[in-house]
Computed example of a mutant assay.
Amino acid sequence: MERLMFLKSINISFLPELKYIYYEEPLLSETFFPSLESLNLSNCNKLRGWWRMSDDDVNDDDDGNSSKIRNLSFPPCLSFLTIIECRMLTRMPTFPNLDNGLRFLDSNMETLEATLNMISSIEFPPLSKLKHLYLGKVDLDMQKLPVNWVKNLTSLEHLGFLKLPDQTFQEIGTWFNEDFNYLPSLRNIHISSCLDLKSLP
């Protein structure tokens, strides 16, 4: 599927038994979804990610396969990415060029962490072009994220939080307390269904 030259949108949702999305080798950036603009992965609780197509049995501990797919990025034309309730998704190409919208809800944070930790391997900070970010039902482990990664979100205009625990909000509060230059383009904040939220930063 990744070699379909004119494919612009993919919607994979409510496939409870789906575990793998296979790709063929050689895995080259110029032939990996070269025209893709929108990707939606939703409610696929068993989905682990992209796997090399072969006749062998799938090996969940194949670190070589994992590192290869993580070293590949979606094309710069990818503008919208939605990942919802994909709790086992860990092996996925990064998306540093995403420029319009990212919805990341109730899914494995390794996927997002891999992109945010690309600072030293690309010309510009990851997600620095992103305009809309929505996070929900996730645990932001700041120890696994680069220092001051929020400063890179210089184009972010809309920020949304859904069903986040109070502890996560305490971490988020540091985004606004340490430097007034954080998120210079931010225009809207939306907070919803955070039932144990005790205070706002």
Rank of each mutant, 00 (worst) to 15 (best):
K131R: 15
P165H: 09
D166W: 05
Y182M: 12
S155W: 00
C194F: 06
V147C: 09
L130F: 07
L135T: 02
F176L: 05
F176R: 04
H190Q: 08
D179N: 14
G173R: 01
N188M: 12
I172E: 00
I189T: 07
S192T: 14
K131G: 03
L127P: 03
L140I: 15
K151Q: 09
D179F: 06
S128V: 07
S185C: 11
I172W: 01
L159Y: 02
D141Q: 12
W175D: 07
D139G: 04
I119D: 11
T174E: 12
D139E: 11
D179P: 04
S120T: 14
L116N: 03
V138L: 13
S185P: 04
T115V: 04
D139P: 02
L112W: 01
S128I: 08
L145Q: 03
S193A: 11
D139N: 14
Q167T: 15
S128L: 05
S128D: 11
L164I: 15
E157W: 05
Q167E: 14
G160P: 03
L127D: 01
S155G: 03
T174Y: 07
L112D: 00
T115E: 02
L153P: 00
W175I: 13
E178M: 09
F169R: 01
L159H: 01
R187L: 12
N188H: 12
I191W: 04
T115P: 00
F161E: 01
G136T: 13
F180M: 05
S192L: 10
D141M: 10
N117K: 04
D179Y: 05
L140C: 03
A114D: 15
A114R: 04
S128H: 14
T115R: 00
S185K: 07
L159R: 02
I122Y: 13
N117Q: 12
P146K: 08
L164G: 00
P126N: 10
I119H: 08
L183H: 01
N152A: 11
P184T: 08
S121F: 13
W149N: 02
L156V: 07
T115F: 04
Q167R: 09
S185I: 05
K151C: 04
I119C: 07
N177V: 06
L145V: 09
L112T: 03
Y134P: 00
S120C: 10
N188I: 10
S192E: 15
G173Y: 00
T154C: 10
F169W: 14
N148H: 13
V150T: 09
H190N: 07
L156P: 00
S192P: 04
L133G: 00
E178K: 13
I119T: 11
S120P: 07
K137W: 06
E123Y: 06
G136V: 14
P126H: 08
L153K: 02
S120V: 08
K131W: 03
W149T: 05
